[in-house]
Structures are given as structure tokens and as C-alpha cells.
């Protein structure tokens, strides 16, 4: 009873102590959607394609986590490949970032959403500076160059950017968790990790044409064969700051391949289940926990605001014309 009374006093006090000067999820999503709102679509990474298949776990992470998905065996997923940007009909090959998202519904109480991008790190370390970075991106090349100059923490990101060559397939990219998480084992021991999906094939962009080049390439590939990725975990040491998403970890860190992700099928996003899913990376099963990374912790609030807006639009029939295509 005392706890309840204490919280009754404490929580409203935290409320009053909040400074409204910080960027809110509403401001963030307003900035992402820009002046032209594409109703019913995600405010970020609006253009995508649903994928499905299974994760074949080899059991090698069970020492570090008791999450069911890592027990030896297979877990089905509903996922999504997408490109950065708020326009659901943007040209595939012009987007600077490509993404893979996964949803594992292992059981009614153990669900996991994974959101991954091609860059291995963020350019900045907190959501408020990230907001300024998006403003600079929208303002043009000069503004973003000045932004990077003013933010030395973006060095690891710039190193990646200068060496990155976009491939000719969603299936040939490396997708990174960017943010770090803790794996928790039965003994309640914590291990900070990042992960990436390592492709098992290469593809050049030569010969690709059209607005939907990557989606068409994916459809043609899946008509012939399954697509396989190795799911690789990188273990942090004491020397790494798992709470800073802008800092790369050295290549010498121990890596463990947890198994293979096998993609077997695809669907247009408005016809597939992936469109309904909010790939909030803070929906985690028991055995995985978030770090204190401020950008990771900002994601839930921002994703929720985007999801609420498009859910309301879908309820109001915003996509009915599209889905009859």
C-alpha cells in the first residue's frame, strides 16, 4: 500500500519536472512525414515489401540467452525489406539506406521485433541530435556537410559511408542492429551484443532499371530460390560502450553465428501481414533486454506515434483504393 501512495506522489512530480524544450515524438514524426503525408503508410521507410520464412537456430547462443528463438530449431517470421524515406512510391535505387525488419511470434507471451539498416552505426548518439541531422539532410548537401563537421562523433558513420557500395539486391546487403542489446542467460548474466545479417550472395546493380528495381529483383530471385543470411552476433567487451550507437566496435571482437535466416516468400506490402506490424525494436522476448542507448530508447515513442497515425488513417479507409489494385 505504501508503494502505491509513494508512486502516487512521485510520478506526478516527475511529470511536472519535465522540460518541454526537448524534441517530442510528435515533432519527430512531423519532420519525418514532411509536407506531403502519405496516408496509411509508415512515416519512415514507407516503401517496402513483405517477406516470410524461418530462422534456423543452431543453438550456439543458448549459453548467453534463454530466449526461446535461440534454442536449436526453427522459428517462422514475418518480415519486411524497405528503403529509407517517407514516400511509398519512391525509386528503389535512389534511397541511401536499405532495411530489413523481422517479427517473431514465438508464443502469445514471447514476441520479438527486429529492425535493421545497412549502416552499422548511427552518425549521432542521441535522439535530439538525430533530429538536427534529419533537418540538415532535408536542407541539402551543404547543410549536412556542415552538420558532420560540427559533430565529430559521426566519424565512424562517415568511414562506413565512404566505403559502402549499394548492391543490386535486397538479398546481397548486410543489415545491422546498430543499437546494442543485452543477452540474458538462465544465470541472469548480461552480455552486450550487436548483430548483423550477413548475406550469402553478391549482386551488382548493373542492369537494374525502374522505380521498383529492388522489389522486382527480389520477386524474380524468390521465384527461383530461397534467400539465406547468416545471423551474426558480435560480443562487446569491457572496452566497448554499448550505450553509444555512433561508435563502431573493433573487428577483433568475438563473433558468433546464431543460425541462418531463410526467406522463402514475398507479398506486396499492402497485401501482406507486414504492413500491420509496428517493427518497434523494443518489443523483446524474455532473454533480451535494451541497453541505455538513448537512440534505442527513443525508438519506442517515435514508432508508436507513427503507428498511431497510420493506424487511424487505415481505420478511416485511407488504403482502400490502393489495396484494390
Amino acid at each position: 500500500m505504501k508503494t502505491i501512495f509513494m508512486l502516487g506522489l512521485v510520478l506526478p512530480c516527475i511529470a511536472l519536472a519535465q522540460q518541454p524544450s526537448k524534441v517530442t515524438p510528435q515533432q519527430f514524426v512531423n519532420l519525418q512525414e514532411g509536407d506531403i503525408v502519405h496516408k496509411g503508410f509508415r512515416r519512415a521507410h514507407a516503401k517496402g515489401i513483405c517477406i516470410s520464412g524461418e530462422f534456423l537456430s543452431n543453438g550456439s547462443l543458448t549459453k548467453y540467452t534463454h530466449a526461446k528463438v535461440f534454442e536449436k530449431g526453427s522459428t517462422p517470421f514475418i518480415g519486411r525489406f524497405s528503403i529509407a524515406g517517407s514516400n511509398p512510391s519512391a525509386p528503389d535505387l535512389k534511397a541511401p539506406v536499405r532495411s530489413m525488419a523481422l517479427s517473431f511470434a514465438t508464443s502469445a507471451t514471447q514476441q520479438w521485433r527486429v529492425a535493421m539498416n545497412t549502416p552499422p552505426v548511427m552518425a549521432v548518439s542521441d535522439p535530439h541530435t538525430f533530429y538536427q541531422q534529419i533537418i540538415a539532410i532535408k536542407a541539402g548537401p551543404e547543410a549536412i556537410q556542415k552538420f558532420f563537421k560540427d559533430h565529430p562523433e559521426s566519424q565512424d558513420f562517415l568511414n562506413w559511408k565512404s566505403s559502402y557500395q549499394p548492391s543490386g539486391s535486397f538479398a546481397a546487403e548486410t543489415y545491422n542492429s546498430i543499437n546494442a542489446f543485452y543477452l540474458i542467460n538462465e544465470q541472469d548474466e548480461k552480455q552486450a551484443v550487436r548483430w548483423h545479417m550477413r548475406p550469402t550472395l553478391t549482386a551488382t546493380p548493373e542492369g537494374l532499371k525502374g522505380e521498383d528495381a529492388l522489389q522486382q529483383e527480389l520477386q524474380q530471385r524468390l521465384a527461383k530460390e530461397d534467400i539465406v543470411f547468416d545471423w551474426v552476433y558480435t560480443l562487446a567487451t569491457e572496452a566497448d560502450n554499448e550505450n553509444d550507437p555512433a561508435r563502431a566496435w573493433p573487428n577483433s571482437r568475438q563473433q558468433i553465428t546464431a543460425g541462418q535466416l531463410v526467406i522463402r516468400d514475398w507479398q506486396f506490402q499492402l497485401k501482406g501481414e507486414c504492413h500491420s506490424i509496428n517493427y518497434d525494436p523494443l518489443v523483446l522476448p524474455e532473454g533480451i533486454e535494451p541497453t541505455a542507448d538513448p537512440i534505442l530508447r527513443a525508438r519506442s515513442g517515435a514508432y508508436a506515434e507513427s503507428y498511431r497515425r497510420r493506424a487511424r488513417e487505415v481505420l478511416n479507409g485511407a488504403l482502400e483504393a490502393n489495396s484494390n489494385e
Binding site: 500500500m1 502505491i4 501512495f5 508512486l7 502516487g8 506522489l9 512521485v10 510520478l11 506526478p12 516527475i14 511529470a15 519535465q18 526537448k22 524534441v23 517530442t24 515524438p25 510528435q26 519527430f28 535522439p127 535530439h128 523494443l282 535494451p290 541505455a292 538513448p294 530508447r297 527513443a298 519506442s300 515513442g301 517515435a302 508508436a304 506515434e305
Partner: peptide
Amino acid sequence: AMAALLISLLSAGLLMVQSLEPWQITI
């Protein structure tokens, strides 16, 4: 007890939908 609990829940709700701070997922 429920007065304190409900006021806390309502305050927390109003706060958390407007926050990108690290405590957001804790609240």
C-alpha cells in the same frame, strides 16, 4: 489508494506519449 494510482497512471500516460527520453520505456 486508487486516487493516487489513477492520477499517477494518467500523468505517466500523458508524459510517455510525448517523450523520447531514455526513461520513456521504463515509465
